[in-house]
């Protein structure tokens, strides 16, 4: 396995690598270029990086204007501010006119760590998912994060991509890796239960699946990098094959991947679903890895919850 890398770092690298192929790409930040890693792009292309200062709502509006005039803006801030503070700007200035604005939101979830609950956005997928026409992605590693950035640039319309602060293992560095918006990826076959994970929980879930395997439980593992549009065919098929479904995300259990999967299955293939994620509560300060363990979102925590479920 390759070294760990945070998907925010992958994001900054991808922007820089794609800059020449996408001459209309411009990158906006709100005084967080060093943290969101758009600074990597800024260093290489200073004329195409616009620091809007600490004013996220205005930044999203500026991006809407840039897109209306033919640019492809990537706006960046922490998920809390990009999806939370600027929600209505994203909804009305970007979503409603279906403008070609890409939102690269970093520092999502409790893995923000020490900064604590005020900065740990566990609601962004829920918020963005409700906006008509919005594509919502949550890549699991370096390879997928870079692929998601490119796919977003090739897609006409608004896109939200969630990136993390914590370095995560590279799991998609396979020769046949292919990324397509809205297509889930089966990482492991299994017949007893389906584990559907997203973002940094994908690698934890793969580990949990190994632990289940040792107990004689055959778990299918699906990586959902696109929360919206959800790969409903894949989800329904897996639910019908295994009869039980677990969703795993570093997001509130309300409104995110778990809800998207339940929305789908309740209509098309009613199935018992266990939603693993951040319970209906705020986060807290602490090292990211410790918090993930404390909130039961590490491989062992996932394994235990699944054992109790089956």
């Amino acid at each position: 396995m390759a070294d760990k890398i945070a998907t925010r770092e992958s994001y900054g690298n991808a922007l820089k690598e794609l800059a020449l192929d996408y001459p209309d790409l411009v990158v906006l930040d709100a005084d967080l270029a060093a943290a969101t890693k758009t600074g990597i792009f800024q260093k290489a292309y200073p004329d195409r990086h616009i620091d809007c200062g600490i004013a996220e709502c205005n930044m999203v509006g500026i991006a809407a204007g840039l897109a209306a005039a033919g640019k492809i803006p990537f706006v960046s801030s922490f998920a809390m501010f990009a999806a939370g503070r600027a929600f209505e700007q994203v909804r009305n200035s970007v979503g409603y006119p279906h403008l070609n604005v890409k939102i690269g939101a970093t520092h999502a979830g409790i893995s923000v760590g020490e900064d604590g609950a005020s900065h740990q956005c566990c609601e962004d997928l829920a918020l963005m998912r409700t906006i008509p026409g919005m594509v919502v992605m949550n890549p699991s590693d370096d390879v997928e994060a870079k692929a998601a950035v490119k796919a977003a640039l090739d897609h006409e319309g608004p896109v939200y991509i969630r990136f993390g602060r914590l370095a995560v293992p590279v799991i998609n560095d396979t020769p046949d890796y292919k990324f397509e918006i809205g297509k889930g990826v089966v990482l492991k076959e299994g017949k007893d239960i389906t584990l559907i994970a997203t973002g940094l929980e994908v690698s934890e879930t793969l580990e949990a699946a190994k632990m289940l395997e040792a107990d004689g439980v055959s778990a299918k593992v699906i990586n959902i990098h696109t929360i919206k549009p959800l790969d409903e065919d894949l989800v329904v098929k897996a639910a019908q094959e295994t009869g039980k479904v677990v969703t795993i995300e570093e997001h509130s259990i309300i409104g995110g991947l778990g809800s998207a999967v339940c929305d789908c299955l309740s209509a098309k293939a009613p199935t018992k679903v266990l939603k693993i994620g951040v319970e209906d509560r705020f986060g807290e300060s602490g090292p990211a890895v410790e918090l993930i363990k404390k909130y039961g979102l590490d491989a062992e925590g996932i394994y235990k919850k699944i054992k109790a479920f089956i």
Binding site: V26, G61, I62, G65, L66, A68, A69, G70, N92
Partner: peptide, 25 residues
């Protein structure tokens, strides 16, 4: 109509973005 609007305070930001796009191009 060059920009959808209606939620007050947002149109000016879009106009600023368009003016910035002109400068960048």
């Amino acid at each position: 109509v060059d920009m959808s609007s209606g939620s007050l305070g947002q149109g000016i930001s879009a106009a600023v973005g368009m003016a910035l796009a002109a400068k960048l191009s």
